[in-house]
């Protein structure tokens, strides 16, 4: 049987999904990236190889997405490397063909994707501020000593959310501390925080955009019912959280891998046994011209695997024979 891998390597988590030919999720993994994307991918594939042993499933295609998509793509031999906006949109359209709005909040970025008739027509991504993303919620949970998973439930207990300044994550934190010192209850403060973050998201990304139903909420933060609830109140619309909300980017990538391989005929996948190899990345500045490009070399056991970064292409030309699969991303 054929399986298609989607690998989403983000700032906080690395998600890997295996779909069968009918686009059903066979395996989904959610791992922490911990600042080492290659290691996270190696560990994930190792896990998948154990789970697949004896099932007769062959990996027939693989695609990577997320902020480390290019690096991960080279390591695994991706058939295609896609940006996370496209991947999330593809997955959203797959689980809910009528979808018109996708809210995605991940570890360090948030996106808004507007879809009409199954096609992305507009999108926005946060630029200057990471308030309201997963990292910030993580940080607040640690500070309040509540597991982040319970954050949302607690906020639902509130009848009277306090108003928290959500413009900036640092000020949001000092405002929360201030409200705690004033003696407000924890559920009211957390509910207030969820509302503030929702406000921040809508102000930053949704200005001038028409958010129509159905609205899908995906990304790690969608697990937080408090934020979902705040979105429903702010938009006055039902907000749907898909079952696999935390791995939607990887699902999208796997679907894209399936399409790509269909057109291409074969896969470039390098196999699940990556953990046997040692990978390292090195960079240097090329002083050949005033551009002073930073050239990045990726080695697998001292063999050059990929190289990028030169604008004139001279370093890539030299490494051309190994680069054929990752040239266009």
């Amino acid at each position: 049987m054929k399986g298609f891998l989607g690998i989403d390597v983000g700032s906080v988590s690395t998600n890997i999904v295996l779909l069968n030919d009918h686009k059903e999720v066979l395996i989904s993994l959610y791992l922490r990236t911990k600042g080492n994307p290659i290691k996270a991918v190696q560990d994930g594939l190792q896990d998948i190889s154990v789970q697949l042993a004896g099932t007769g499933i062959d990996i027939a295609g693989v695609a990577t997405t997320g902020s480390a998509r290019r690096l991960a793509g080279v390591v695994v031999g991706a058939d295609t490397v896609k940006n996370e906006i496209t991947s999330h949109a593809v997955a959203a359209i797959f689980v809910q063909p009528e979808v018109q709005t996708v809210i995605e909040i991940g570890g360090q970025d948030s996106k808004l994707i507007i879809i009409r008739n199954g096609v992305v027509v507009d999108f926005a991504m946060n630029t200057v501020c990471a308030a309201g993303t997963g990292s910030f919620l993580d940080h607040q949970a640690v500070r309040l000593q509540i597991p982040v998973e319970e954050f949302g439930q607690l906020s639902l207990q509130s009848n009277n959310p306090v108003r928290i300044a959500g413009r900036c994550s640092v000020f949001a934190e000092s405002d929360m501390i201030h409200k705690q010192q004033m003696g407000y209850s924890l559920p009211d403060i957390i509910a207030g925080l969820c509302e503030a973050l929702t406000r921040n998201y809508l102000n930053n990304l949704a200005k001038g955009k028409d958010l129509k139903s159905p609205v899908l909420f995906q990304g790690g933060v969608a697990a937080n019912v408090g934020i979902k609830d705040a979105f429903e109140k702010a938009l006055d619309k039902q907000v749907l959280v898909p079952e696999d909300h935390h791995v939607m980017g990887a699902i999208g990538a796997a679907i894209i891998a399936r399409e790509t391989v269909k057109n291409k005929g074969s896969t470039d996948f390098k196999g699940l046994e990556l953990s046997e190899f040692f990978y390292r990345a090195e960079s240097f500045e090329c002083n050949h011209c005033p551009n002073i490009c930073e050239i990045i070399n990726i080695f697998r056991d001292d063999v050059l695997l990929a190289r990028w970064g030169s604008r004139c292409g001279r370093w890539e030309q030299e490494a051309h024979h190994i680069l054929t699969s990752s040239k266009r991303w």
């Binding site: 902020s67 896609k82 940006n83 996370e84 906006i85 496209t86 992305v120 027509v121 507009d122 999108f123 991504m125 991303w329």
Partner: peptide, 10 residues
């Protein structure tokens, strides 16, 4: 890069 790539894709 991500934004421009997504824009072109779109």
């Amino acid at each position: 890069e991500t934004r421009v790539e997504a824009f072109i894709d779109m």
